[in-house]
Every structure is written in C-alpha cells, then in structure tokens.
Design a binder for these strands. Sequence first.
RNA 1: GGCCCCAUAGUCUAGCGGUUAGGACGUCGGCCUCUCACGCCGAAAACGCGGGUUCAAGUCCCGCUGGGGUCACCA
Length: 525
Amino acid sequence: MTVPAAPTESVHGNHSHAARWPGRDRHPVRVRIAPSPTGDPHVGTAYIALFNYVFAKKHGGKFILRIEDTDQTRSTLASEDAILRALRWVGLQWDEGPDCGGPFGPYRQSERTALYQQHAQLLVEKGAAYPCFCTAERLEASRRARMAEGKPPGYDRLCRYLSKQELADKLASGDKYVIRLAMPLQGETRFFDGLRGDIVIENATIDDQVLLKSDGFPTYHLANVVDDHLMQISHVIRAEEWIISTPKHVQLYAAFGWEPPDFLHMPLLRNPDRSKISKRKNPVSLDYYRDAGFFPEALLNFLSLMGFAFGGDREKFTLTEMIEAFDFTKVSAGEPVFDLQKLTWLNGLYLRELTPEALLMRLRQWRLSDEYLLQLIPLLKERIERMDQLIPAASFFLTGDLDYSGVVAQLIPKGRDKTQTGTALAELTDFLEEQVRHGWTHEALEKACRDFCEKTGWKTKELFMPIRLAVTGRAASPPLFETMVAIGKDLTRRRLRLAAQALHAYVPPSPEASPSPTPKASKAS
RNA sequence: GGCCCCAUAGUCUAGCGGUUAGGACGUCGGCCUCUCACGCCGAAAACGCGGGUUCAAGUCCCGCUGGGGUCACCA
C-alpha cells in the first residue's frame, strides 16, 4: 500500500535537497510547462516556465510546451494563442509544442483523449480505478452531510464498493459516469521534493480523485501523468499548489507500473498581502506588463529573483548568465511577494543601458508604432486643431498606470459616495472580465457597461463619467469604449481597479480640518 | 476545520555552528548639478516566540505562533 519513495539518502553533508538535482545521469533532461488555456497569459506561467527553461538549458535538455485544454467548458483557442504569443514575447522558446511539433505529439491534450481513455480503462482493469455514477446533486448532498459531521468533505466512495452485478447493471443502463482513482485506504505516500526533501502524506487523507470526466475528457491528474510518462518528462517543476495532489500522481505512476519523474515545487508568487498572486490585487497578465512598458528581459530577470540568488550579490543578469550560474541549491522555498516597484527599478536599469537608437526601436515595437498611432489619430483629430496638441491629448494612451490623486473627488458622482463608486468600479472590472472575454471590442464594452448599470441600478449618466476618469484620468476624452479598446484590456482593467482603490482610500477634506489659515493661526506659531 | 508547505528589515534575498548579520528595492539625508532624473556617499530598518543539542545557534532538533496552499467531473 505504501509506495516507496525514490532513494532519499545521500543528502548528507549538504543542507540543500536540490543537491540531488538533476541526479539522473542516465536520462536526458526533459521538462515541460503545461498552461491551461482558460484565460489571460499569467505571470505565474512565465515564472514556472522560466525555471523549467533554465533547468533544461543548464543540463542540455529539452523544454516542452503542452497545452492542458482538458476543460472543455473553459478552454479557448483564443486563450491558447494569447499564451503562446505572450511566452514568445517573454523570450522562452520551447523545443516541442503544439505550434512547432516534436517527436511526442500531439502537444494539445484535447487531441489525445483516446489515449487517456485507454489508460483509464487499463487502471479499471487493474483495480486501481473504478467507475462512479454519483450525480453532482448526490455529491453535493454527501459533501454537506460530511461537513456537518465534521468529516473531510471528500467523496464518500459509494461506487467503489458496488458489487459486480450492480456495476454491470449501471453500466448497462447507459448512465453517465466518471472514472475515479481508488486511493489506498491505509499507509502513506512519500515523495521527494527537490526544494523541501521528503514529503509524506497519509493516504487516508486523500480523496478518490476523478480521473476521467463524464464527457470523456481526463482531469489534470490523469492527463499530466499519462503525458509526462509518454513524453518522457524527467523532472516536473511546477507550482507549490500541486504538492497536495502529488501523492495521487505518485499512486498513478505506481498503478501503471511506471517510474515517476522527480518533483520540485516552486513557491507561489504572492500579492502584497501574501496571498497567492491574483488579478484583483496585482497585475497578473503578461500583456499588462508588455503594455505598461516593461521589457521581457527585465521581467524574466525580476522573476528569477523571486527565489533564485545568483550569488555575489548580483541581481541583474541575462538569461544566459542565469543558465550558467543556475542550480536549484540556489533557489529558496520561501514565499516571495511580487514587488512592482522593484521590477520597475530593474526595468529602468535595462532601459538606460540601451542606446538611443535601440530604445527608439523598442518604443516603436511598443506603442509608437505606426499601427498604434494610426488607431489613435481618428479618435483624436476631431478634438485638436494644431498638430502640437496631439501628444498632450494622447498622453493616457501612452501611459501605464494613472495617478488619481488629483481627480478622486471628481470620480464621485452627485448623490453617491466614495464607497458606492469605488465598489461599482471594482465590480465593473470583474463584470468586464466575464462579459468581454471573447473580444475586447467597443460594441461588447458598451453592451457590458450598459448591462452593468441596469443590473446595479446605476444610471449610465452617472457611472460613465467615473469610468472615463478612471480609464483616461480626465473628464474629457474621445468616445469611452473606443478609448478602452485602444488602451487595451489589461491596462483598462488595471486602471479601473486602481481608481476603485483610490476611491476607497480617499479621505474627503473635512471643513474644520481645512488648512485655510484663520486670522489667529498666523505663521508664527 | 483536516492535511501539507513556508518563516532573516515594509519587500526580494545572502548566510549552510563562532559574522560589527552582507547586498538590493523602497524610505530618509547628503554630494553632483541650471532643474529633475541618473550616478555616488551615508542613515534608519531584520534573525517571530519558547524549549532543547552544543564551549558556542540566524544556522541543528522539538513545540508554539504567524502566514500560505489544498480539500471540484478547474488546472
């Protein structure tokens, strides 16, 4: 029942567990990044990709990109494109992937479903997995009941103990079912984490995970194990949030009779409040960093500082230099807070070392491209009379974050207060994330903003001005929705959140405490 | 709440038994300078708490506390 860990001794005399890495001289190093195309390209993806990439290059191995689009309801091709584009922007070129192919394809999991189904079937035959016919309703009810009893909320394993006859009947009935992993009920599962050493988890605390969903698609757990094995992944470097499910994966390897890869979990990037990095508290989309004027090499350098210490107090280094110096013994398992200010400083270092010509080129690749300026000119030309007025009128199109300290008071419409307005802007941001997922167009934006007003009881007349102020920093601007399109999804949303924060933090000047000098309070005091 | 992970200044980190606890961002002060920025110099600022082990503990062990993650037919 207890799955033996890979050999764990031999770290004597060295305090770092990573001393074992790569530790598999016989095998070529093959690592992968496996993003799920369900949203914007995430900075955490770049972070994990970076360490995989560097580790692969350090050891002459391969870095593979695999698309985990096993969630049919949430995965989109648009998101996949955006992720690939963003990773290319960031400069981490993969050796095998859905776009460039490779000897272990296909690299998109939705194109491998038959493989997962065969493997799930194999596990059922071996008795390591079983069909489960429980409905969502029953699962929910059972979960609630178990919570009420103070038990862990996991699946109660009802279908694990179906008799042969019951099973045959259910199967014959044609009801939808899933395949679940039959976790050992006793014992413990142990694995070695490259940063933390041995991690031991009681099997009894682990749920019978769904491996194959009723739509025939695999869950992450099955797909990642099957693919990592078939693609001959040697080392799994992924985020810390996966630690708890690693025993399930270890059990799967054991059930298949496969040798598991080595595991290493990177710490999670954090918001300033130390929670897992999230879009509400910190910009998270790689497109934001691009649009806000960061250089990809600075972003990568900064990301590497989140845990990796180059040595010799060095903080600025190229990817190539990082590869040379790299070693997981120089990576800490601490929980790094993503500090936008320090990233900005680092970016400044990169910017200043560019020649004027080189910087001009970068600016042209950014927002001083003919293409982008041509997008702005139609919006601005009705509002100006001389060419010299263009740049001042366009400033907010060429800016990252805006400063609202001068306009907070104006953000609040008559009859509303700062909390109502701030909350509305924050909720609108969330609303836009949901409603304008499939194309950031002015039609979609207008509809969403109007729908939002209707839903929340705001008049468009009162809310559109604060939106305008948040997005442009001004009361006068080109048409709002076209402006939002030109500014782009990520910068627009960021500004809305920033304005909401400025509102919540705003302290209106109270008449008594006003600094206007009274006759008695002369400057002598 | 159960389980798991983490723990040096506000933040990122160095430290692998004996250090005036080092560097960086940020903050503050100064120099440079027509201004600002850059640059340079300087300052304030940290080993969460309690037990062990040891001649000696930021460093090793245990407990506590704190923070985080995870408990989906999402990854």
